[in-house]
Write a protein that binds this DNA or RNA. Structure first.
Length: 239
DNA sequence: CTCCCGGTAC
DNA sequence: GTACCGGGAG
């Protein structure tokens, strides 16, 4: 693969969008990537599951985070891992005990599914969580978001994620029009197209922090937002 | 008190 | 489309 730019570059530059992500301006894409990663360096949260590369720990955090706020997950994440430090210990535990440890996070089907994932990982994968998307999606309890989160956070793959934070950020910055709920396919394409090569981990963590801290559902910080010069929704707030 | 929110399985 | 289960806003 040639690494130097040649005549080909010029003809590619003329196109402002690709088939993969129609309407995505290459310069806006580049600025979004750069500014997001820069913002993350300065404002990124110091969360416990960002200090580990153990896929089991990442899985536990992601299942807890599926429908529960970060602040409530943090203490339970530590407590759960103290009691069940690995897939093996979780698989060997009684489901009733796992559910007790889970309380009061809610959605109590989640500890059952987490336990079954641990059992299946021990039995079918030798205690090692697979990184393949299809295999991850075959587990009850791992959907498209969690599969992407595990692939990017536990295995450093450039896999897209789309949760409510990411939906809100991408819809505001790049789309602005229409109901985000009905444009999931396009948002998944955007989420994938925006990941800078080799930086899936940082980019995905960054966009979730950005949605949680700056591009919030209520009262977003548009005035000081690093994306405001090209955001299709700016200014959203009235403050 | 009454809504409203949210990943996944169904 | 709905249920799941808690927290938070109004």
């Amino acid at each position: 693969m040639p690494t130097t730019s040649g005549p080909r570059t010029t003809s590619q530059r003329k196109k402002k969008s690709s088939k993969k992500s129609p309407g995505l301006d290459v310069s806006v894409k580049r600025r979004f990537q750069t500014r997001l990663l820069k913002w993350y360096e300065k404002h990124g949260r110091d969360l416990p599951w960002r200090k580990t590369s153990d896929p089991y720990h990442i899985l536990v955090s992601e299942v807890m985070l599926q429908q529960t706020q970060v602040e409530r997950v943090i203490p339970k994440y530590h407590e759960f891992l103290d009691r069940y430090p690995s897939f093996e210990e979780l698989a060997d535990a009684a489901v009733s005990d796992v559910k007790k440890t889970w309380y009061p996070l809610g959605y109590n089907i989640r500890p059952e599914r987490l336990h079954s994932i641990a059992c299946e990982t021990m039995e079918r994968y030798g205690g090692r969580l697979p990184s393949d998307a299809e295999e991850l999606l075959s587990f009850k309890g791992i959907g498209r978001y969690t599969a992407g989160a595990i692939r990017s956070f536990a295995f450093n793959e450039d896999a897209p994620i789309l949760d409510t934070n990411v939906i809100r950020v991408l819809h505001r910055v790049f789309m602005a029009k229409g109901d985000p709920k009905t444009q999931k396919a396009k948002l998944w394409q955007l989420s994938e197209a925006l990941i800078p090569s080799g930086k899936g981990y940082d980019f995905n963590q960054a966009i979730m922090d950005f949605g949680a801290i700056c591009c919030t559902a209520r009262n977003p910080s548009c005035r000081q937002c690093t994306m405001k010069s090209f955001c299709k929704t700016y200014p959203f707030d009235q403050k």
